[in-house]
């Protein structure tokens, strides 16, 4: 009975009232974290539309997923999004942060303007970009016309639509990463640059051998956050394209939503969510490994 004794002693040594402090969270955790997690493990083995009773179908949801063209399509779309969004985001954020970090006047004001799209609702931003990307009279195509260039089918061409959304998402989020880069830049000790210039390193070499390696932790954070954001992409295609043209902007989240709420396939939607979660965890772990090993910090 020593274990029981340990527990009793442990509880006795606890501060009075400590359990009241954590009780609300424990209840919340059970209801909104533990229960959904366990329930998702049941759902993936069932066919269910919420209304009629659940029907156990074993691994059929996974069978279906393996043969589901739209699932692969949504994965591919997310990959397209990430391949454009992440490099663009890192490049633009780094460029603007480096510019802001050179002791310019009005630094605070510029930073505040670049950050503005971050705080505005994604729905408002999407409505706005619908007009920017509009084929006939959109802002971008009007500007292209004025410059004597042909229109770009931003959201109409299946090959262009996802890249367009990736550019828009970059515009919306880049302010966060400018701020993170600025913090990172300020944390680089001046002595490193002094030592580098004593060794005869030109500004570009200093950037390559001092700035970039020192910013590596920030880059990891940005890549991971953008990846998680990319996998959560929903409202932009929902409002802008509805997943089209030709499913080219069907994101993972939009596909899960459609399966659950357009078709009432709760079991299959939960299976998609389950598999997507595994994919996200896998990708993030892989990214950390690769980036941290390639640029030693």
């Amino acid at each position: 009975m020593t274990r029981l004794g340990d527990i009793v002693r442990g509880v006795r040594r606890s501060d009075r009232g400590a359990y009241w402090f954590i009780l609300p969270y424990v209840i919340f955790f059970c209801a909104f974290v533990a229960y959904p997690l366990i329930f998702s493990l049941i759902l993936v083995f069932n066919r269910w539309n919420i209304v009629t009773p659940m029907e156990w179908i074993g691994l059929k949801n996974f069978d279906r997923l393996i043969g589901d063209v739209l699932f692969y399509r949504s994965l591919l779309n997310t990959l397209t999004f990430l391949l454009i969004h992440i490099p663009l985001q890192v490049a633009v954020a780094l460029a603007l942060a480096l510019l802001l970090n050179t002791g310019v006047r009005g630094r605070g004001l510029f930073r505040a303007i670049y950050f503005l799209p971050v705080v505005v609702s994604g729905v408002a931003v999407t409505i706005l970009w619908q007009q920017i990307y509009s084929f006939d009279e959109g802002i971008l195509n009007n500007i292209l016309h004025a410059a004597g260039l042909p229109s770009v089918p931003w959201l109409v061409d299946p090959r262009v639509a996802m890249p367009s959304i990736a550019i828009m998402a970059t515009w919306k989020n880049v302010g966060i990463y400018i701020v993170l880069f600025l913090v990172g830049l300020q944390n680089i000790p001046r002595e490193l640059y002094e030592a580098a210039s004593l060794d005869g390193a030109r500004p570009f070499k200093q950037f390559l051998y001092v700035t970039l390696p020192m910013l590596n932790p920030t880059i990891v954070v940005i890549v991971v956050l953008s990846t998680i954001g990319g996998f959560s992409l929903f409202i932009e295609p929902y409002v802008l394209t509805g997943g089209g043209p030709m499913q080219s902007t069907l994101s993972g989240m939009l596909y899960i939503y459609n399966q659950a709420f357009s078709f009432g396939h709760m079991g299959y939607a939960a299976t998609l969510g389950f598999v997507y979660a595994l994919v996200i965890l896998g990708v993030v772990v892989l990214q950390r490994r690769v980036i941290e090993s390639e640029i030693p910090s």
Binding site: F29, A31, F32, V33, Y35, P36, L37, F39, S40, L43, I50, I228, F231, S232, G252, M253, I256, A260, M266, A269, A270, L272, G273, F274, Y276, A277, I280, L281
Partner: peptide, 20 residues
Amino acid sequence: LILFTMTIPFQIVLIPQYIL
């Protein structure tokens, strides 16, 4: 547990939470 909660992608709990 709290740290673990932060690593869960929301995609996995979304549908079960809705059903709840």
